[in-house]
Write a protein that binds this DNA or RNA. Structure first.
Length: 460
RNA sequence: GUGGUUGUAGUUCAGUUGGUUAGAACGCCUGAUUGUGGUUCAGGAGGUCGUGGGUUCAAAUCCCAUCUUCCACCCCA
């Protein structure tokens, strides 16, 4: 018989019980912090209309969108002429939906559709998978989870400060160390771009200097001069990007430089405000850095931008975000500014796994396995199961009548701490054999005493 | 999307210049112990050599395509 070897698409993964226990630890840690800061949950569909998604992530982003073929005869609107006009023309006729690329754009769509009934400032968190038609690598998947928290309807830098605060708290609670939270501002970069002679080419500037750390100075300068930036002016701007010193020194120096550049000044003011709110909060965030070379490629950011990276550079960014003032206006609802950030669970998982940061935990919830020595023991055992469960004790019975050896082996491998043995002796006396799988010790107790004993253990 | 790389039992890997029945370790199953797991001992099962085509008397081995893995670019969580 010929069969098909099962596979899953490249860049996707299954998560078994052991992995799920660890992933759930990350999810619940993040969720707890989001809720502590007053964010409310939201879920949106995995697929969106392509009209909602296209054009929000820049040219590169459109290519990385997974498109869904129309149902039924998807070719019916096509003509021979369309074929000649190229794939972009064809795409519009055969596909109207796509898988979401991130959680921010669907959120903006949701806000635009529901702004009349939302309470502003609206703070939402969202934990769902996103899809990108990228080439997979380590820490880079085609389906992965993002955990986003965003506020819309507020221009206050309190929001920026709270985002940094949440990032700090989440990473602390996960036990991750030696990472850096970088912050910068698109308006500062806009001013720097102007100083480099690139008015109207800000996006090129952002994308180019975002590579500074990885690709090096020469390549970035070449990319900029190729794009029409002035070589001499670039030489003046570059030392600024690499400027040393603490936040205050950087701000003072830039303020002098920006004296006539309005955008730059207002960007600096917002950075200053953000830092001062953090200071007033009296929390100490040692790994926060004002980094002028942070740019981020996504085209919708207009204000502050953040990113979290590991100091050893072992993996891309773990988190990223920023302020976007015009996203909902693309859907016809102007004047709803927003700011938010996204955590990459899959990369966080990889970092924690590599550094062995997961707390000890079993993927098994079962506390007691009821084993039966023969068929007669089965009907005797079922009411005992009910009693255990009614007391909140997770219990299961081995469903088949097989050798006790096999049943104990099952408990051992699944990491179940207690086993109750039921045989003719137990049924006669009502004293059940309770065995601890850890110590191997066993004792004869009635069901009431067993429940009490296990409950005491659970409370410890 | 561009360039490179990887694929052999469940897992990690051997497999000579193309040459008989493709091996090991661990894991798995069975038994030693018919009411006792994790140790030990004995035995056993398990392979479309990623897939499809080609060259050859003969292919895990050579060639082509494709899928997958990882890496670089691009971009990003």
């Amino acid at each position: 018989m010929k069969y098909q070897r099962p596979t899953i698409p490249r860049g996707t993964r299954d998560f078994g019980p052991v992995e799920m226990a660890k992933r759930n630890f990350i999810f619940s840690t993040i969720k707890t912090v989001f809720q502590k800061f007053g964010y409310q949950p939201l879920e949106t569909p995995g697929m969106e209309s392509l009209s909602v998604l296209m054009g929000k992530y820049g040219h590169e982003g459109d290519q990385l969108l997974f498109k869904i073929l129309n149902s039924g005869d998807f070719l019916k609107a096509m003509s021979a002429k369309d074929l000649k006009d190229g794939y972009r023309q064809i795409l519009r006729k055969v596909s109207e939906k796509g898988l979401r690329y991130d959680l921010t754009v669907p959120f903006a769509r949701y806000v635009a559709m529901n702004h009349h009934k939302l309470v502003f400032p609206f703070k939402r968190y969202q934990i769902q998978p996103v899809w990108r038609a990228d080439r997979p690598q380590k820490g880079r998947y085609r389906e992965f989870y993002q955990c986003d928290a965003d506020v819309v309807g507020s221009r206050s830098m309190i929001n920026e400060a709270e985002i940094i605060w949440m990032i700090y708290e989440i990473f602390s609670n996960l036990g991750i160390k030696s990472y850096t939270i970088k912050i910068n501002h698109r308006k500062i970069l806009e001013a720097l771009s102007a100083l480099a002679g690139g008015e109207g080419k800000e996006n090129t500037f952002y994308i180019a200097i975002d590579k500074l750390e990885k690709a090096g100075k020469e390549k970035v300068i070449r990319e900029l001069t190729d794009a029409g930036f002035d070589h001499e002016k670039i030489d003046k701007v570059f030392p600024l990007l690499e400027m040393a010193g603490d936040t205050r020194e950087k701000i003072i120096r830039l303020k002098k430089l920006f004296h006539s550049l309005e955008a730059g000044i207002s960007g600096l003011q917002e950075i200053e405000e953000t830092f001062s709110h953090i200071q007033d909060s009296e929390i100490n965030i040692p790994n926060l850095r004002f980094d002028l070379s942070l740019a981020r490629g996504l085209s919708y950011y207009t204000g502050s931008i953040f990113e979290v990276t590991m100091d050893d550079g072992s993996i891309g960014s773990l988190s990223g975000g920023g302020r976007y003032d015009n996203l909902t206006s693309l859907y016809g609802v102007p004047d709803i500014p927003g700011v938010g950030f996204s955590l990459g669970v899959d990369r966080i998982y990889d970092v924690m796994e590599k550094r062995d940061l997961f707390p000890d935990q079993t993927s098994t919830f079962t506390i007691v396995l009821v084993t039966t020595l023969d068929a007669e023991a089965v009907p005797y055992s079922l009411p005992l199961l009910a009693k255990l469960r009614s007391q909140g004790i997770s219990a299961e019975i081995y469903p088949d009548v097989v050798k006790i050896k096999k049943q104990l082996n099952y408990a051992d491998r699944k990491g179940i701490p207690y086993v109750i043995l039921i045989g003719s002796q137990e049924m006669e006396t009502g004293k059940l054999t309770l065995k601890s799988m850890r110590t191997g010790k066993q004792e004869a107790l009635d069901i009431g005493a067993i429940i009490e004993k296990i409950k005491n253990q659970m409370n410890d």
